[in-house]
């Protein structure tokens, strides 16, 4: 039975011999937290799930970016990260321009953390929001359960980037947006799924009522 608890930098996680997961460090045989987050020792791995921090590109991450420069071989993409990303022309089936919203995958990250992107697609219309990237896993949920819930209840198409950007398309996008901001605020609590379900149902009901 794994239990998670809130920690701050320097807090002791465990004195046992464990494998080191993300956001912890070892000193004098003891494992400590590097960040503010939820600590967990599960299946022999000690880790901390961070609650704050900017997005640092990682291989395999889906990301949503904005074209900020059009170059001859491809595009410079803003990921709301201190690190840059580049999408080569051949990774996009059509031509993009300044300000276009792109969803892509991080193919590779170099020694100084700049990202090379692949499999890009332009997202047209819709609405783009940015939340704390560390709360994205909660918006997706275990086995995409939260994301499916949001899409099913509101009918909105939602694309989520690991870099904290979320693209929404649909009539009830504003309700989905409010729900996502709520998840962002309460990501570290339990019983969230039920509260979000209740919130959306109430909002959607109110909306149908007003469309009489």
């Amino acid at each position: 039975m794994s239990e998670r608890w809130l920690v701050v930098p320097g807090d002791l996680i465990t004195e046992e011999k464990v494998k080191l997961g993300p956001n912890v460090y070892v000193e004098g045989g003891k494992v400590y937290s590097k960040v503010v987050g939820l600590a967990e020792v599960k299946e022999g791995v000690a880790r901390v799930i961070p609650l704050e921090g900017r997005y640092i590109p990682r291989e395999g991450d889906p990301v949503i970016g904005i074209v900020v420069d059009v170059k001859i071989p491809g595009y410079d993409i803003d990921l709301n990260s201190p690190y840059k990303a580049f999408l080569p022309n051949e990774e996009l089936s059509e031509e993009a321009s300044y300000g276009d919203v792109i969803i892509a995958t991080v193919k590779r990250v170099d020694a100084v953390k700049n990202a090379l992107l692949e499999k890009g697609n332009i997202l047209r219309g819709g609405e783009l929001i940015t939340i704390n990237p560390k709360k994205i896993p909660r918006v997706i949920g275990k086995k995409r359960s939260m994301l499916n819930l949001l899409q099913t209840l509101t009918g909105v198409t939602i694309m989520v980037g690991a870099n904290g950007r979320i693209w929404l398309y649909g009539k009830n996008a504003d309700i989905a947006k409010e729900a996502i901001f709520k998840i962002e605020q309460e990501a570290h609590t339990s019983g969230l799924t039920d509260r979000i379900t209740k919130f959306i149902e109430e909002e959607m009901h109110g909306r149908r009522g007003n469309q009489a």
């Binding site: 930098p9 400590y32 960040v35 503010v36 921090g53």
Partner: peptide, 11 residues
């Protein structure tokens, strides 16, 4: 710094 998510050895 901790609020910004910057990893630290201690506070």
């Amino acid at each position: 710094l901790a609020d910004a998510g910057i990893p630290m050895r201690d506070l």
